[in-house]
């Protein structure tokens, strides 16, 4: 069972969810390139200009770990990375769990993505200018976190650490992507987890994904926001576990 984190964080995203499946599955968490403890020197701007490059990494990783017929759990952009990986190597995954997925963030004719192009440009601009106010200000805050040494230690090493430059490029690859066509032909069973009041992946998008994935189920959580795996880990675990038990399993 492979857990893939989304844009903005690293494998720590799954710290409240993945342990719940350790007994039933071999669980794998990893960092995308540019995040957490990944090898930044392996970054290739051309390869990672689109989500394909990240999907190739997933395929390579899973083959390296001899994953077959497994479960792929992807949050946000990693949901689409999982779709791409599954199409590249269908033998890897029997099931795909898509947490807050979006095949296209930009609105299009007859399609609601949730964002206009100027809004995405504004986001990219924001990320270009904000890393100094955030990343650099973060380090001393984290380092000085003396009253919670166990957390501080972890954060100091890799907690949600991202390389600002790669993060910017990842944002571009993410928010300008259009993988709607890739939804067709996915053979694995899919679970679409849609949370309430998600400004990044609104309800319409979750519905769209569900409609276009042949073998899919949709679960609407009570949890709000884009990160139910953090804000509502129990509800998220419940949805995944139910799905894994199979149709009619509950």
């Amino acid at each position: 069972m492979v857990f893939a984190h989304g844009f903005g964080c690293d494998q720590n995203m799954w710290r409240f969810v993945a342990p719940a499946f350790e007994e039933s599955h071999r669980t794998i968490v990893f960092d995308h390139i540019g995040a957490g403890g990944s090898d930044l020197t392996a970054y290739d701007a051309d390869k990672y200009a689109s989500l394909d490059g990240y999907a190739d990494d997933v395929v390579e990783l899973c083959r390296g770990l001899s994953v077959t017929g497994g479960v792929f759990v992807g949050h946000s952009v990693s949901a689409m990375i999982g779709i791409l990986a599954a199409k590249k190597a269908p033998e890897l995954f029997e099931s795909l769990v898509l947490v807050c997925p979006s095949p296209r963030y930009l609105d299009d004719y007859g399609y609601v993505g949730g964002f206009t192009r100027p809004q995405v440009e504004e986001l990219l601009e924001f990320l270009d200018t904000n890393h100094m106010g955030w990343s650099q200000a973060m380090a001393p805050v984290i380092m000085g976190n003396a009253d919670r040494p166990e957390l501080g230690e972890e954060l100091t090493n890799s907690f949600c650490r991202t390389d600002p430059d790669i993060a910017r490029r990842f944002a571009r690859a993410t928010f300008l992507a259009d993988n709607r066509a890739d939804l067709a032909g996915v053979t694995a069973r899919c679970l679409v987890i849609q949370s309430s009041e998600d400004v990044i992946a609104p309800q319409e998008v979750g519905d769209y994904v569900h409609r276009h994935l042949a073998n899919s189920e949709l679960v609407l959580l009570d949890a709000t926001g884009h990160c139910p795996n953090l804000s509502a880990p129990e509800e998220t675990i419940q949805a995944i576990a139910t799905f894994l038990r199979g149709p009619g399993g509950e």
Partner: peptide
């Protein structure tokens, strides 16, 4: 927040707050 702030809030702010219990100095 503006749209960029919203996304940033969802992808960075909220997850960090959830994980470490605090989040400081966000512009």
């Amino acid at each position: 927040l503006n749209i960029a702030g919203k996304i940033y809030y969802e992808t960075h702010f909220a997850p960090m707050l959830r994980m470490q219990g605090f989040f400081n100095e966000v512009a």
